[in-house]
Design a protein around this nucleic acid. Sequence first.
RNA 1: GGCGCUAUCGUCUAAUGGUUAGGACACAGCCUUCUCAAGGCUGGAAUCGGGGUCCGAUCCCCCGUAGCGUCACCA
Length: 454
Amino acid sequence: MTDEKESFNKGIAVRFAPSPTGPFHIGSVRTALYNFLFARKNGGKFLLRIEDTDKERSTKEFEENIFDSLKWLGLDWDDKDHLLRQSERTAVYTQKIHELIEKGAAYISKESEGKNKEVIRFKNPGGKIKFQDLIRGEVEMDVSDLEDFIIARNINEPVYHLTVVVDDMESEITHIIRGEDHISNTPRHILILEALGGSRPIYAHLPLVLAPDRSKLSKRKHGESVSLNFYKNAGYLPEAIINFLAMVGWNPGTDQEIFTINELIKDFDIKKVQKKGGIFNIEKLDWLNREHILKQSKNLQIERLKGEILKTKFKDYEKVGDPEFLDKFLVIILDRIHRWGEVSEILEAGEFDHLFIDKPELNKEIIHWKKSTPEKARENLEKVVQIFNEEKTLEIIWTKIEKLAEERGKGDVLWPLRYALSGREKSPDPFTLIKIKGVKASISSILSAIEKLS
RNA sequence: GGCGCUAUCGUCUAAUGGUUAGGACACAGCCUUCUCAAGGCUGGAAUCGGGGUCCGAUCCCCCGUAGCGUCACCA
């Protein structure tokens, strides 16, 4: 244990200490991230601790969700064999409570109201507590109005304020990096810490991640969009979520916007963390996510694309298994999505039915270009079919169609062609369509358009 | 309400005691173009208010104001 510790620089240790009382919160992701970045940047330890003293609300499912989420995000924690789970440490806390009582720093208090008739209260010495905050500078609070606050429901059931302090002491946490909503808890923690004879860590209180209405993100008020799962399911990449959250409240002082986790580690500086809370701006996340999708390897992109198609009505189409088809489809889909979940949404909306179904439904009225006539459209389509029949390779076919379009008017040739192929007023260009559909399906689509015009 | 934190474009932010206050997202226009998407270019858009200090304050100080957080036998 000692040897292991010495391999870490300056003995720096931070912790991320979530409660498994709900789905992993997006604000927690950022707290975890900043702790992680700080530890990795400074060669310290990044510890995980499960704060499940609230037996009523803590569940194993939510705990699993914490582990899974951190792994998915790539925020790997240290000392996995020594993970502290507060529900397993009551003996330690009980001993500390006894210690505090013996020292006269705490006492058993008879209650006239509340759940328990007897609780353990901390004997508040009053006065002012001053502490240094890495982000906010000096913070001073009068602790008198806290009165004798409760540190345990009974001798065997400690409350958060006590467990935090005991565990941070045990893990030798040097820097406590947590949300701003804990500022007002800090004097309490310092009081307990001093009574226990611990040495004071350095505090850093992060600004909050806010909802668009500038209030703290909460499940009650803002629904499922506060949980990490929501973003995972919507097809956001962990890289993008990390990149985005890192930039809410911090920036490197340069114009760089796109970061990998390693670049973040390299540039991270807790002193540059903002004091002001930042709004979770999903439009910027969307943009960043697209940038990160574009950075993925082609194999990964194809694999993901296929997975998304398998979620849709086209899951049984044989094209889904055709690597060549996927390859071509990928090109047009990458221009159109910000997150992978959009693939199935677009597909279900029918926007790309024509890529799976050879002959799309056509509306006679719009086969011809707006500025032209049905007669011209038919003539041109017939000429296109002729080209298809005369030539063999796609390149030559396309060169001839282009030439035809030059001669007879681009809109007059290309609009009917594109509409015949797609059955949609808005679609990728006809050449792309032909490549994806194949020559055979393309011809039959065009023929059915001609038929419709006859 | 007490206590605390905060204050630069709509949003995330940069900057300095002296700048045309910079970038990104979003938005608008233009270009490209048969349509859409993508892409390129251009544009509009900010220092909360009032006092100081100073030759000069967005920046430093004070006072307001506003927003947020917190005031549990939750964490």
